[in-house]
């Protein structure tokens, strides 16, 4: 085997052994203190090793309940816009776009909701609940631009970016809890611990969504995913460019919403330019497309 192939293999082994060691230390302490016997400890170590090492091992079902809790928490701060026509339009467009993504199916499916805020922002909760502010939608001049916004958020969901915001220690705690649970049902203590871990996870995600933002790399990944989805479905991916230029025109380095959580629009545009530079310019959308955009969002665009 060549050295080049040995290095990543070695890295993988180190990572796996590293995770297993955390569990082994914990179970050894539990054995010494008489909480469990050696056989149970071995079983726990096997299951932790086999399953919950990181965000990427989370089942879509768990992701679904994390996402519901994140959305419910955000909705306490960002009230929904009760506009049936607009929300229906967002859902038909968004759910159709999601069919063209790398991950068309999540446990509970993709859903979109307008929220009442002047901030220019959107929140992709794990599992596919996506909240979009009135401020962001009113920035869109046409359906292609709005499709770019939704496709970017779908990219965050498909890439499980929200789950990556959860601290690693929480996965270790949940993994160990689930392993010790084994064949018996949860007692109230385990349930309380799991609820605490859920609360912590929601805190990690909402902090990222509202205050800290994702890394520049994850934003680029979401933009690239958006270009791929827009291209597959048949929208002009320059809709993303149009959105970024609108955002740039409003950019203040210490401003609220996306300005706090996203890289500068021009940096993002530079990253996606190679993928869209050969695409024809974004012309006027077909009449019926623009008509339905303006009709559905009449209460939002004003």
């Amino acid at each position: 085997m060549k050295r080049r192939t040995l290095i990543p293999l070695f890295a993988v082994i180190v990572v796996v052994v590293g995770c297993a060691q955390v569990s082994q230390i914990a179970t050894q302490v539990a054995v010494q203190e008489g909480h469990i016997d050696q056989q149970q400890a071995d079983s726990i170590n096997r299951t932790v090793e086999a399953t919950l090492k990181a965000w990427s091992d989370v089942t879509p079902e768990q992701e679904h309940y994390i996402g519901r809790a994140v959305a419910a928490t955000l909705l306490a701060t960002y009230p929904p816009v009760d506009d049936q026509l607009a929300n229906r339009y967002l859902n038909v467009m968004g759910q159709t776009l999601a069919l063209f993504s790398d991950r068309p199916e999540t446990f509970g499916g993709y859903r979109f909701l307008l929220v009442d805020s002047d901030d220019i922002n959107a929140f992709a909760c794990p599992g596919g609940l996506i909240l979009v502010t009135r401020g962001l939608v009113s920035l869109c001049e046409n359906e292609d631009a709005l499709a770019a916004v939704l496709a970017h958020e779908i990219g965050h969901v498909a890439g499980k970016h929200g789950l990556r915001a959860i601290k690693k220690s929480r996965w270790t705690n949940v993994g160990t809890l689930l392993a010790t649970e084994g064949a018996r049902n949860f007692g109230s203590e385990e349930l309380a611990q799991l609820t605490e871990e859920l609360e912590g996870s929601i805190h990690d995600i909402t902090q990222t969504l509202i205050n800290n933002g994702y890394s520049k790399d994850l934003e680029r990944e979401a933009d690239e995913a958006a270009v791929a989805v827009l291209t597959s479905i048949g929208y002009n991916p320059r809709g993303l460019e149009a959105m970024l230029l609108e955002m740039e025109a409003r950019w203040q380095p210490s401003g609220p919403g996306f300005m706090r959580t996203h890289p500068s629009p021009m940096d993002r545009l530079a990253d996606v330019t190679p993928a869209i530079q050969t695409v024809e310019p974004l012309g006027d959308p077909p009449g019926p497309r623009q008509l339905r955009f303006e009709t559905a969002l009449a209460g939002i665009l004003k």
């Binding site: 299951t47 086999a50 399953t51 919950l52 989370v58 089942t59 079902e61 768990q62 309940y65 994390i66 519901r68 809790a69 959305a71 419910a72 928490t73 909705l75 306490a76 929904p80 909701l113 609940l129 949940v174 993994g175 689930l178 392993a179 649970e181 084994g182 949860f186 349930l191 309380a192 799991l194 609820t195 871990e197 859920l198 609360e199 996870s201």
Partner: peptide, 28 residues
């Protein structure tokens, strides 16, 4: 591991909702 239906599940959501009256699941 019995991951399905375990971990963050409907049961944990119920417990979370009981302890966090401020969160709003109606629209969810």
């Amino acid at each position: 591991l019995a991951l399905a239906g375990k971990g963050f599940s409907e049961e944990v959501e119920r417990s979370f909702r009981e302890g966090n009256q401020g969160v709003d699941y109606r629209w969810v």
